[in-house]
Nucleic acid binder design. Structure first.
Lengths: 144, 144
DNA sequence: ACCAATTAAATTGCGTGCAATTTAATTGTA
DNA sequence: TACAATTAAATTGCACGCAATTTAATTGGT
């Protein structure tokens, strides 16, 4: 090839893309026990921190829009994990809140990050660097 | 919350997941000019390096299986970018090769990584670190 | 108070990803 | 040489992601 700039191994986005999918693949067996997909697990992570949150705020937190969230939240509601309610103050807003079942899932979920980290042999230093760089990237994106 | 281990900001996989999607979002306007999706662009990157490759080998390179690749390659074939041919030596194998149009797209594509890097203000050091850590992660995954 | 502009979700449509299964070809072994 | 085991793609089915549009509610300016 004329110039190496188009070589797969010289791209930054490809390893990011590939690593993300391989990571979520490692989560899958852990999440299967809770009958959750990875994005659904992320929704629960947010709700365990902040129960009762609007779809919009949830979307801002996870960088997802209503086109993704609405059907996903409906599936989670059908499973009895959460409740979707129109806000009384502003009828445009839908608020999401955990059910008892959704709250109880947190206990089980505590095992997941631990088990996950056990099989990820990144040393402490790389782990910290990776988080720092990704956080920087996401900051820049939020600003722009 | 009882323990911080479930906090979204303490997860490593979430920023990876979010950053990947934000990065591909930045590619989109660039790829729109070539009428390509990001995964399709990845397929072309491989083919520009190695024209004529089996679906299996392509999948190993991109960490994708036939369930994803077959319909995607068919769409790309319909667009006239590549040709899918059953191997004569082994009829199970389908080989993918660029058409003239697919080859010519490389010239246009050269602009893409440059334009992309211009809007990604990661400093050199972070960029190198990120690539190194992601490569390490992917190596570990391939081994296991 | 009117009404255009804005905003939040929902909807539509399409392209991935991927597990699981199926189909067809090849290989290894008795 | 049969034929079970393996292998490569294709197929099926479901859950995202996201652009674009629509619907319904609210806000802001006159």
């Amino acid at each position: 090839m004329a110039n190496d700039i188009l070589k797969l191994d010289n791209q930054i986005c490809f390893p990011l893309y590939a690593a993300t999918r391989e990571m979520t693949k490692r989560y899958r067996p852990l999440l299967d026990e809770l009958n959750l997909t990875y994005p659904q697990y992320l929704v629960l992570l947010v709700l365990w921190e902040t129960d009762r949150i609007s779809v919009k705020a949830l979307g801002e937190r996870l960088f997802l829009d209503s086109g993704t969230l609405t059907p996903m939240l409906k599936r989670m509601e059908a499973r009895g994990l959460l409740k979707r309610t129109r806000s009384k103050q502003d009828e445009r807003v839908v608020e999401v809140a955990l059910t008892e079942q959704g709250k109880q899932a947190e206990t089980k979920a505590t095992q997941i990050p631990l088990k996950f980290l056990q099989q990820t042999q990144l040393d402490e230093e790389d782990f910290i660097q990776l988080k720092r760089i990704l956080a920087k990237m996401l900051d820049q994106i939020e600003e722009s």
